[in-house]
Design a protein around this nucleic acid. Sequence first.
DNA 1: GGGTAATTGTGAATTACTCATAATTTGCGG
DNA 2: CCGCAAATTATGAGTAATTCACAATTACCC
Lengths: 157, 157
Amino acid sequence: MTTAQHPWPETLRDCGLRVTRQRLAVLDAVAERPHQPAEAIHAEVARRLPEITVQSVYTVLHDLTAHQLLRRFDPPGSAARYETRTQDNHHHAICTRCGRIEDVDCVHGAAPCLEAPAGLGMEVEVADVVFRGICRDCAAQAGAEPASAAPQPLPDS
Amino acid sequence: MTTAQHPWPETLRDCGLRVTRQRLAVLDAVAERPHQPAEAIHAEVARRLPEITVQSVYTVLHDLTAHQLLRRFDPPGSAARYETRTQDNHHHAICTRCGRIEDVDCVHGAAPCLEAPAGLGMEVEVADVVFRGICRDCAAQAGAEPASAAPQPLPDS
DNA sequence: GGGTAATTGTGAATTACTCATAATTTGCGG
DNA sequence: CCGCAAATTATGAGTAATTCACAATTACCC
């Protein structure tokens, strides 16, 4: 689908970061499949760079997140996820049954929820919103199967 | 301040739970100091029940959370916190410098942010909102000290 | 190409929990 | 009150996710 890739090397250099195979591979993997945990990113990256270690993936993810090339998202009760959408203010929806994570564009405009805490003595910089519920597919299945009480352990995207 | 305590024993029995010293002590500790991690709750509880173990605190927190007597909150990149405000829809503000966590009442009314994802194929049950920024105290200090780049490791309340 | 600082690899350590099982306790029935 | 059964807690080990220290390698300016 996306034949034209991001100019990752340029972006890296703009941040004062060196261009390495590991960083490019991680950026590609996260761009292609967002909302994956570090282990899954490592598995994907290892297909091209079999010698890469999980620890290096952690280091790369940490560095790229610190430089705003990646955004880290912590689903409650699960490992951290990463995505390349860092410039816009978007939120996330998690299905409590199948664990699927989807992006949710901001409803109130560009910087929506930041207007919220009027009386709060704080200058708000970020507002992270996590919606939780039952996605359409799981709701459809719920009619047939009563479904398990415990939610699935957050599989993939 | 709050001389009149909650009727925890009654509340516990209403949930079909037995009344134990450990549960009462945990409920008291969380009510008195919300937004504390399990370790801090254990430390507080241990002042009255020196023989209690951290694992038991984890079990109690888990059980009470499952029965809606406590609400669990996962700050990004930090251990879980607990609070007794379970009936209202409120959110949280975290100072990225000092780590202080404060409650934020809902701005849009009772169930505010649930109206958000119109085009989303999901029936939203919960909307967790986390505001992050610099609190008033830290902003005042920022003028004097340039402050460290890394945020403090989420101390207390 | 050479040097140097940045980056990655290696391996151990840590944090925040969870799990299995044994000991204890609560609360009901008698 | 007493005792039993189920619920709860203590004990100890185990796990997942991530971090840390340091040695080996690599990118990039000259």
